[in-house]
Design a protein around this nucleic acid. Structure first.
Ligand code: FES
Ligand code: FES
Lengths: 141, 141
DNA sequence: TAGATACTTGACTATTTTAGTCAGGTTTAT
DNA sequence: ATAAACCTGACTAAAATAGTCAAGTATCTA
């Protein structure tokens, strides 16, 4: 069970962005340098964040990205959803009544995997970008 | 973030085994058939479970595996640990003070990833094999 | 208006991980 | 003796990951 870099980078980048968001758009180049993430990779990530309306882009010199909603209203769920970092505890389709490997019924432990998935998703639904920034400032004091 | 088949199979197989555990050893062939898991793959998995003393093997005809501890004392943590299904939310070493990609400090969101890892591991530490079997019986009633 | 900055898009690829398979053993009950 | 079942190590196809690369377009500033 691991979190992918794509998901981790997306959150890192947005926290970085949110901290400088007040005044000007933040360029990916700056985020890339500050956070040590490949610029080209960031571009892929922000393309998805923009499509899901989490950020807005400002083109041209002095351009960059700004948050499209208040930090409080951006939950981890939204970010992970945007970059396709989904929690998957099973292989079978959720809506189908069939089990894994095309078996006719769900497995003995199916309930457990659903619980696990919910448990993890709850965490993502509770945390907002704002929480992360606050947490960060507090720890520095 | 996905759970691998290896981890899922390990738990499925142990629940199956635990249900028939009272009387005789349970053969992997039976588990394979009942749960639809490749026999060869199960053998790899049980080799690890045996090394971590979660199960005991009985060789020869009529042989198989039995639980090596009470179902109540086998937590999901133990199972996942045995088959190397670890929760990893970061790439950098936990004990090192260095960050990811060999950076000199930990990242802005590091605290978050630690929290997430704990959140997930808590779930695994709470659930025992016994819980799973009970849950299963209840749902069938 | 030339040039620089920065977003935009799509294709491509090396590496790693996953989910097994396969081939050959050894042990033991009947 | 033979069959059932455990045991071990090596191998591999397919998928996922973590990027890179190339070729744009838009906008600001000198
Ligand atoms: S995990 Fe797919 S059937 Fe339960
Ligand atoms: S995740 Fe590695 S430095 Fe924070």
């Amino acid at each position: 069970m691991k979190l992918t870099s794509k998901g981790r980078y997306a959150v890192m980048a947005l926290v970085d962005l949110a901290r400088f968001n007040n005044i000007n758009p933040v360029s990916l180049r700056d985020i890339s340098l500050r956070q040590g993430i490949s610029l080209d990779y960031l571009e892929q990530i922000f393309s998805k964040l923009r499509k899901k309306e989490i950020v807005q882009s400002v083109r041209g010199t002095q351009g960059g990205y700004i948050l499209n909603r208040k930090a409080k209203e951006i939950k981890l769920t939204n970010i992970f959803d945007a970059v396709d970092e989904k929690v998957k505890t099973v292989q079978c389709k959720k809506d189908s009544k069939k089990g894994c490997n095309g078996r006719s019924t769900k497995c003995l432990t199916h309930n457990l995997w659903d619980e696990l998935e919910n448990h993890i998703n709850n965490f993502f639904e509770e945390k907002s970008l704002e929480d992360l920034i606050k947490d960060n400032i507090e720890r520095r004091v």
